[in-house]
Design a protein around this nucleic acid. Structure first.
Lengths: 249, 249
DNA sequence: GTTTGCGATTAACCTCGATCATGACGATTC
DNA sequence: GAATCGTCATGATCGAGGTTAATCGCAAAC
């Protein structure tokens, strides 16, 4: 139940039934959290990690002036701060964007898993590196795209991720975010995000209103944001079989 | 020898002698590579990873116009594409910036390590998540800092990283990069990097000439780049003891 | 029915950094 | 010595996006 969406449709690393059961058993508690609550702060030492079941969470860094730069947003099925397991100490804050349901996994359980289940360990490792791959795409977004491209890229990415979580039909999805949130994600001001949103609407690419996104022209939107979903490592039956997908010796 | 600098001075995760020997034994070959060579391309399926022994390497994403956004630079001691072990397929290119010496570790060896040495596995996992933490700092740099701050932040980060590799005395270091390289890292044009470098020199913060950096006022430079080295997880004897550093049950 | 407050919207102005262009300098190579 | 190339340097111009501020719409609260 809780882990149903974790690593869903990820080629070669989706969980086996036994692995899923083991992970499920590792959950100590579940709870609901209000929107805009801080779950963990930079510098904290953690002995547990958070699996997001419902809602949207984020990770962010503060600058000197109190402004934030979001470095990740997390959707249902994401193991939000699994990386706190090897790192132990956080380098950023973690919080909810919308009301959320979370499951807590104590690091002692992860110790047991890494001792006993190397294959599952590699899959957990994979999950954290998927986050790193998304970080890289975000770096590209901030470093090489203009404002319109950044927002377009973000909407494309989120659409694909939500779709693989079963929360988007590929055309429209409910993103619980404000224009100000998108600004913190894309390194822009809210005022300019507003201009960009209007532009995307007037050009017939997509509509963002009341936290809901409707994609009008997916191909054009992806082109405008130079979006290629390869970095999300999602299992797409249409894509060619990997040349090197033989089982390990 | 080859792995001497790997995870050096990282609190709680530096390698034990036995672990280092095991990793050393996992190296299949070493080789030297010229500057500006591509080691691996996006989309490739890999069955080995690269440990950087000498020189500087980078990872980058290409945009449609052939421009690059660097997403990481790697210094001696870095396990450059260890993340390719769980991911198997790369989402970006990997290449040398300067002439380099590299050691190759087959993934089959890493399979064996993950089966037999869970503690070492967690340390390797840690190394990849350290890269992710650096990605996040880079996101902050691109999203929240102006041009001068970005370059200042980059010099501060690289100084600390090189110092922990024993390649900087904390005041000056040899970075084999050009102003154009710094531009690809900081999401700027070479022309503007040139102006920023002049500004930093005229303000007495640091001098960047012929690929060498000399830091004149470390405190001011760090302040200008809002640099705080916590995210590098380097063992600093002066810092307070972690509250939660008890051995695992 | 009024107040409160958040989020979206729009306008006016201005700055930072991109773009375009040109040239200097040093290190190859012929 | 001349030619070529990579890197550094600097000026002029321009536009994308920041800043500031005012307004509007709408839902919840009283």
């Amino acid at each position: 139940m809780l882990t149903d969406r974790f690593l869903r449709d990820r080629r070669g690393v989706s969980l086996e039934a036994g692995e899923r059961a083991r992970l499920e058993a590792a959950v100590s508690t579940t709870s609901t959290v209000e929107a805009r609550r801080i779950i963990a702060r930079a510098g904290e030492w953690l002995d547990q990690s958070t699996l997001l079941v419902e809602g949207i969470m984020s990770r962010y860094l503060d600058d000197r002036n109190g402004l934030r730069q979001l470095v990740a947003i997390h959707l249902p099925g994401d193991f939000v701060d699994l990386h706190a397991y090897p790192l132990k100490r956080l380098d950023h804050d973690v919080g909810t964007m919308t009301p959320a349901t979370i499951a807590i996994v104590p690091h002692a359980e992860l110790d047991a898993i890494t001792e006993e289940m190397p294959e599952l360990t590699r899959k957990l490792w994979f999950a954290t590196l998927l986050d790193a791959a998304i970080h890289r795409a975000w770096l590209f977004r901030l470093g090489r795209l203009d404002a319109i491209g950044r927002v377009a890229h973000f909407f494309c990415e989120t659409n694909v991720r939500l779709q693989s979580a079963g929360l988007s039909d590929g055309r429209r999805f409910n993103l619980g975010l404000t224009q100000a949130d998108v600004a913190e994600i894309c390194g822009l001001t809210t005022v300019h995000v507003n201009r960009v949103v209007r532009h995307l609407r007037e050009e017939g690419l997509c509509i963002f209103r009341n936290g809901k996104v409707e994609i009008l022209d997916a191909a054009k939107l992806a082109r405008r944001g130079q979006f290629d979903p390869a970095y999300l490592y999602i299992d797409d039956p249409a894509s060619p079989t990997p040349p090197d997908q033989r089982p390990r010796r």
